[in-house]
């Protein structure tokens, strides 16, 4: 048997014996980024399609506000991950076109006003606001009375959400030194997974049966698409080169396989998809369990991809 044995004297923290530079913060940030991207796309679609006059829909009001909170949490997680925190402001002193992290930082800044304006559109319908700020209500009424403007805001949010969702995948796939991330379908996987998690979230909190039904149907579509994109991702890597095939084996049959198959594929996609297909066909009742499974599956997907990706390596040159 041919031997290839490598011994190194290097033992740098977070690098050796296996890379572990990113802990829980980055998967959580990527998940929340995807979730918020989904909020922007779905809520934006509701605005764009003119449904914003159907004021009871939480999709149009609560979702953008929730999104603002979630993206703030995501950015806080990202901040926690930084090792040189006092210099975080440096992100906003330059735009580096070649760095997805740089344009991601700027996208995150643009997400706030886009979602805030979208949230404003439904302000008057909320009877439960603790305070009533008059100028906000006037602004809101003005926005609602201009249908074209409202639709434009919806379109901007859909576009912004799509870019944000794609960015969470591109962030990893641009780091070509990690073969598991070196895939052109990662952005689509994270975008669809984010959309699916958002549809599940709104399905879970929607007050009306009609809206739950609508979001469950949408989620079934996203989950089916996610399965397809996941298959493309795995097949694409498995057939690229030995290095990429080695990397994808981490998910298919390696260390991360049990978590991947049971929690990402099983609990996160296949089982909730089955239950929700029965639910939309009125065989079983809509419950919070399938959406919760979808949301958990989306989060675990980010954890698995980030952690396994760090273990994947171009070759055995450094002691893997």
């Amino acid at each position: 048997m041919t031997t290839h044995e490598i011994t190194t004297t290097r033992m740098n923290p977070m690098i050796d014996p296996g890379m572990h530079i990113w802990g829980w913060e980055i998967p959580v940030y990527l998940f929340l980024g995807g979730l918020v991207a989904g909020f922007m796309v779905i809520s934006g679609y509701f605005l764009f399609s003119g449904r914003f006059q159907e004021s009871r829909h939480v999709t149009c009001f609560r979702a953008p506000l929730t999104g603002l909170i979630l993206i703030s949490l995501g950015m806080f997680a990202l901040f926690l991950d930084l090792e040189h925190k006092l210099y975080a402001w440096r992100l906003y002193t330059t735009i580096k076109i070649a760095s997805p992290m740089s344009w991601g930082a700027w996208i995150l800044v643009l997400v706030y006003p886009a979602m805030a304006i979208m949230a404003l559109i439904h302000l008057p319908d909320q009877k439960h606001l603790p305070i009533r700020v008059e100028f906000l209500h006037k602004l809101s009424q003005s926005l609602r009375s201009h249908e074209g403007l409202a639709k434009t805001i919806g379109a901007i949010n859909m576009l912004g959400g799509a870019i944000l969702g794609m960015y969470t995948g591109v962030l990893l796939s641009s780091l070509g030194a990690r073969p598991l991330w070196s895939s052109s379908s990662l952005w689509l996987l994270f975008l669809v997974s984010g959309m699916s998690a958002t549809a599940a979230f709104i399905h879970m909190v929607a007050p009306t049966k009609a809206e739950r039904e609508l979001l469950a149907k949408a989620d079934n579509g996203f989950l089916s698409l996610e399965l397809f994109v996941l298959a493309l991702y795995l097949i694409g890597l498995a057939t690229t080169s030995d290095v990429h095939a080695d990397a994808v084996r981490l998910l298919i049959s390696g260390t991360y396989a049990p978590v991947f198959w049971i929690f990402v594929i099983g609990v996160g996609i296949v089982i909730p998809l089955g239950i929700q297909i029965l639910a939309v066909n009125h065989k079983v009742k809509h419950t919070s369990i399938p959406p919760l499974m979808v949301i958990a599956g989306g989060l675990i997907l980010r954890f698995v991809i980030v952690m396994a990706g760090q273990h994947s390596h171009w070759s055995n040159a450094h002691g893997l």
């Binding site: 977070m14 930084l82 975080a88 780091l175 070509g176």
Partner: peptide, 21 residues
Amino acid sequence: HNKCIGCKACLASCPYDARFI
């Protein structure tokens, strides 16, 4: 050093694992 935010993207991008924090 005073421009680095410690995001570790460069560590992940290096096929030689030549960097550290």
